[in-house]
Amino acid sequence: MTYTFKTELTHADVTPKAAFMNRRQIIAAGGALIGGSIASPALAKVLEFTKTDYGSDLTLNSYEEITTYNNFYEFGTGKDDPARNAHVLTTDPWTIKVDGMVDNPGDYALADLIGDIPLEERIYRFRCVEAWSMVVPWNGFQLSHLLDKIGVQEGAKYVAFETLLRPEEMHGQRRKVLDWPYREGLRLDEAMHPLTLMATGIYGESLLGQNGAPIRLVVPWKYGFKSIKSIVRIRLTDEEPPISWNMANPREYGFYSNVNPNVDHPRWSQSSERLIGGGLFAKRQPTLMFNGYEDEVAGLYEGMNLAENF
């Protein structure tokens, strides 16, 4: 028996963008009054984007669910900590270091690096390694577009990412829950895959701090922790880069971390998941191979033993 998450909500129930905008403008105006306008925290701004067919058959989680239930240990280990604490994150100015085996290395202001890349909407399933999931309408662009722009050199095999290290604003970094800064990485073919997204928004609004403002990775066929947030460094390399959760516990978290219902986490089963937003009595649903993106990505791992390369 297959369980499908059902809700009576449709696209028509989503709060109209104009309503968001009004609210945000009021908040923004208030913030400007209080704080002056030196550096601005992650206040959501409305984005321009084109719609695509990706995931148009999926039922979306609400904006509230997506922005209040987060794992972002830089702002605390509780699910509601990031929503409470991440508003202090300064996202403007934002600099991204591009280095390693690239043609155009340098420290780029965010707008200089991605300002000319058009945004699109991608609706993806999002499956956390903790066996819960959501459906998120991301706004972003393919990572491959950015990699083309920075010029990947011959011989580069991996892309490494780093999250901002700023304990003054990211209070979770004052405790050594993980070895900060948070690090992630992809094999180059994974990074170049058309599904791999750099997201700057959700529901047509720029990302809030808790969701990884101002720019994050989204790799829909991997467990959520691979989709690194608030990126400040992108490095091309010919060696598999160390990644935070693998460094913390190599037995439990592998470099690949592809969603796979047949390979359990040592401490819990990965064969099913709870879809957030279904309330107290929502049915668990079976977890799909590669989170439902098997047709698109299985080829990347042909001939690999997925139980060993977990």
């Binding site: 609400s62 509230e64 669910e65 209040t68 239930y69 699910k79 509601d80 819960w132 957030i276 107290l280």
Partner: peptide, 15 residues
């Protein structure tokens, strides 16, 4: 509180 939505979007885990 879980039934009436006061425990956030994942009431099962919260309870």
């Amino acid at each position: 509180a879980g039934l009436t939505g006061q425990l956030g979007v994942d009431p099962v885990k919260a309870i």
